[in-house]
Every structure is written in C-alpha cells, then in structure tokens.
Design a protein around this nucleic acid. Structure first.
Length: 489
RNA sequence: GAGCCAUUAGCUCAGCAGGUAGAGCACCUGACUUUUAAUCAGGGUGUCCGGGGUUCGACUCCCCGAUGGCUCACCA
C-alpha cells in the first residue's frame, strides 16, 4: 500500500522519507532514554551547564546557517534550542539533520550551554530520528485558528497552541483536587452503569442503544442519581461518582452531548450541608488548580471565596423582577404576572413551572457572582423532598456562577410513597408529550421501600466549572474531542 | 430545529464593476559555523467548500447542499 501525497508539501516529505530509508536510516524509531525535559534543562541550567543531557521532542523551528544550524525542540513542557555543528556531529548526522523537517520527532544527546545571545541551548553530539512527519504543521506566527480544525484535529491544536495544553492541564488539576477533597472527607468513589434500562435522575432526552445478547434497548445514562441513591439504601452513606453523562439535546457553547458530572450523596445530611460542602469544595479546587479564589471570567471578576449569598427563588425573583409570587397564589395569577413581563406562558401551566420560567428569564443571567438559589417548586423537582412548612416547594438549591447553573442539590426525597406519586405526575406529563419528563422506575422505588436514609445530594457540572476556572468561553474549549458532525468525504 | 455570517495555497489571511487569483509563514534551489519571527538571491506550489443556474465569460451574482461560528429554542 502506497501513501498518496495530498499536496506538494507532502510529496516532498515522502521523498525525504524514501531517501532516509535508502540511506539505511530507520525513520520510525523506538525507545529513547530521555534524561531531562526542556523545562528541567532551563530550570536547572546552573548545575547542568557543560553537562551531557538527552532529550526528545518535536522539531518546531529550524534555522540553518550552512555548516551550523539552530533548531527548536518542543516537548510536553516547552521548547529548547538545539545547536548543531558539522564539526561536532560529523557529516553523517549533519546530513541527516538537513533532511529533517519541522514536525519531525527526534532524540538528541548533547552538552548544555548558553549562546552568545544568552539562549540556553543544547550543543548536539548525537541525533536519532524517532518519527518522520509527513504532513506540514500549521503556521508558526498565528498557530491554528480555524475552530473546526482545532476541534477535529485537537492534536494539532495542542502542538501549536500552548494555551490549549494549559487548559487541559488545569482540567486535570481540578478533577484531582475534587477527588482529593471528597476522599479526605470520607466519601467513597464508586462507578455505576452508564447503560440503563430506564434513563432516570434528570429531565432530558436519552441516547438509545441496543444489547444484542439480551435483545433489549438500553439508554445511555442522563444522570448518576438513581444508582447512587441505591447505594445509600445499601449503607454506603457517603458516595460520589465523577463520570460521563449523555443527553440527546442541542449543542451550544454551553452544551455538549456528552459531558462530565460529579454527583455526591451524604446520608443524614440535608441541602444546607450540601451548600457548605460545595462552597468549600469550589474554593479548595480553585486554590489547588489556579492558585486563587478570585478569578476573571470573560471580563467579570468572580469571587469564589465562601460564604456565597443564599436567597430563595421567590426572594430572588422579587429582587430582580419586582414580582412577589407570595401575593400570587393561583396559577392564573402567576401566569398573568409572567405575561406582564413579556413571557409567553401557555394556559394551564402549573404555578411552579411559571415561577421557574420567570426565574430563568429574569434572575439567572444576572447571577454573576456565585449564588445559592433555594427552594424550587415541587413541579420541577420530582426527586427532592418537600418543604414541611410549604409543600409546593422543595428543599432544593442550585448554585449559579457567571449566569449559569453550576450545581443542583437537594435534601433527597426518601418517602417511597411520595416518590411514586411524583413519578406518576411525570408519567402524566410524558403522556402529554413531554419527552424529557422522568420515567417510572419501579426498581428504584423498590429500593426506596427498603428504606433510604435521609440524605443531601448534589450534582456539579465539571465542564462548566473548568470553563470558569480557565476563562474559556465555550464548553468545547474544555473538552478535548467535542462532539462534531463527521466530515463528509 | 430557526435566523445571520463564514468557507480562497499546508497554515494565517487579502482580493474582484463578473475578465480564470495574491501576501506572510511553510515549502523548493543556492549562499552562510552562535542564530532566534535568522538573513540574502531566486521559485507560486490552488477542485477559490460541493452541485446546479444566469452570462460570451463566475472565486465574484442567483438557487440547492455540506461543514463550522454566533444568536435564539431545548438543556446542565
């Protein structure tokens, strides 16, 4: 099989590949013992000056001066200049070097020194070709800007745009910090199925797949909730899972069909415990990942330092829209008030849903600083415990940052009879055409009937947290390979 | 799913009243043994996203389609 050159630049490189092979040089090498990274050489220059080191990486620039040349080698930590002289390496290696292209991966051994211009460099004595690159890299001044190519060929993005690499390093730090925070507080990390016979725990349309041997359809999970609660029934008491969730919904700068969610549950706690836990966890994670609890997001200064303001949904609506739903006891009162704000509300919508519509339209976008919004209507909270003193509302909060939801938590509903009624209400909505209404989950109800301890539980959107802490405008900037429509051939 | 915008060399981008295309980097040839966005002398390497249409002639105008971006809708 012969590789076709797609353009002249590739043809030139293929020709060089053949020349190397004819000269007996292996263009796809193997193991190479690296003694130092580029950063280690730079940082340890005082001790390393004059010493022999071995490093490997990708050629990013070549400055040839006839019988001596400079090159920039890039490894995962940065770049370092190489200096190659015919006198030092002999004609064989120097000729090999002259056949190299930007993008080739090489290993070199040589002496650490500083050039006359002050640049820390390695004077090459030995050079090994580790991988011949057959396609040209994007341009050195502007990098790769085409977002389509950046997402589809993330490896190129990572090679030429250093700030992209930093985002994903920070993402890893954030996830490590979350684990370390929860582990240190006695939470047990668990793994539950991603394929569910019933897609529950959230209001969303699922992806459907099929198991051949069992001949059943399965849903990719839309939440972690119902399995983690089964573990509370099983006595695990403090559990968390950080995992991929799949929702068959639209794609936007804030939504990817698969995304990462943290959910945690703590027996004998309530949603106030969850509030304390969340603000402490976010502050800890911010300090660990970016070194501060005050960050800038898209021009807004965000102060993540606890405590965060807490107000109920009705208080927030009153504050931002002036509407006082305590004075609007019926659904029709609520509907008229919402319409007066310019919202479109269908006749017959429940009061709780209308309140939520008003909240989303008037309050949510204005919650820039981290804020807890408490006490959501029961109609939109089928898994949360009802407020004792006000059964139309639940012990549920959401945390907002930069105008978007970061976390969702409640005092978990552990009354199996009420839970069944809530599912039945959801089923009625599903029958009425709401594809996102929850499905009845008899298996989960059975677990509740054995008895689930009262508990606080919480879900945190990890991608959105990463966006805030890396000042990324789009969720696609914090997901290595975001969902894309396949390129047609 | 809807509206608007974009798509030109490997990359970043110009271009046009409708007369078959240009820059920088990259690349190729040559010079150069401490340069660094190396320099100097030369070379343009292209399915102007795809398919139709209008026209003597389309990268340019019109229609359809593809992909992406933004806004909106749904959602976290």
């Amino acid at each position: 099989m012969k590789l076709e050159a797609e353009n002249d630049l590739m043809a030139v490189r293929l020709e060089k590949l053949h020349q190397l092979q004819e000269a007996g040089i292996e263009p796809y090498g193997g193991r190479f013992e690296v003694t130092h990274s580029t950063a280690a050489i730079r940082e340890g220059f005082e001790e390393l000056e004059g010493q022999e080191v071995a490093l490997a990486g990708r050629l990013r620039a070549i400055r040839s001066h006839g019988k001596a040349s400079f090159a920039d080698l890039q490894d995962r930590e940065g770049r370092l200049q190489l200096y190659i002289r015919l006198d030092n390496v002999g004609p064989g290696i120097y000729e090999l070097f002259q056949k190299l292209d930007i993008g080739d991966i090489i290993g070199v051994r040589g002496k650490v020194f500083r050039t006359h211009r002050g640049e820390i460099s390695v004077e090459v004595h030995q050079l090994t070709l580790l991988c011949k690159s057959l396609r040209p890299l994007p341009e050195k001044w502007h990098g790769l800007k085409d977002v389509d190519l950046r997402y589809r060929q993330r490896y190129l993005d990572l090679i030429v745009n250093p700030e992209v690499k930093q985002v994903f390093i920070t993402r890893a730090r954030i996830i490590r910090a979350i684990r370390s925070f929860l582990d240190s507080r006695g939470f047990l990390e668990v793994e539950t199925p991603t394929m569910h016979p019933i897609a529950g725990g959230a209001a969303a349309r699922p992806f459907i797949t099929h198991h051949n041997a069992l001949d059943i359809d399965l849903y990719l999970r839309i939440a972690l909730e119902l399995h983690l609660k089964r573990l509370l029934v099983g006595g695990l008491e403090k559990v968390y899972e950080m995992g991929r969730i799949f929702r068959n919904e639209g794609i936007s700068t804030k939504h990817n069909p698969e995304f990462t969610m943290l959910e945690l549950y703590q027996a004998y706690a309530d949603y106030y415990v969850m509030m304390d836990l969340l603000e402490e966890m976010i502050a800890f994670v911010a300090r660990e990942a970016v070194g501060t609890t005050v960050v800038t997001y898209q021009g807004d200064r965000l102060d993540l330092t606890p405590p965060w303001p807490r107000l109920t949904m009705l208080e927030a609506i009153k504050k931002y829209s002036g509407l006082d739903f305590d004075q609007l006891p019926t659904a029709e009162d609520a509907r008229r008030a919402a319409i007066s704000l310019g919202l479109e509300i269908e006749p017959g919508m429940e009061r709780g849903k209308i309140i939520n519509e008003v909240f989303e339209a008037t309050v949510e976008p204005r919650l820039i600083q981290p804020t807890f919004i408490l006490d959501y209507p029961v109609a939109i909270s089928p898994l949360a415990k009802r407020k004792k003193e006000n059964p139309g509302f639940t012990y549920r909060f959401e945390a907002f940052i930069a105008g978007r939801e970061l976390a969702n938590a409640f005092s978990e509903l552990n009354d199996p009879i009420d839970q069944r009624r809530r599912f039945e209400a959801q089923m009625a909505e599903r029958a009425a055409g709401d594809e996102e209404a929850h499905m009845m989950d008899e298996d989960f109800l059975q677990a509740l009937e054995y008895g689930m301890p009262p508990a606080g539980g919480m879900g945190v959107g990890i991608d959105r947290l990463v966006m805030v802490l890396t000042d990324s405008p789009s969720i696609r900037d914090v997901i290595l390979f975001p969902t894309m429509r396949p390129k047609e051939e």
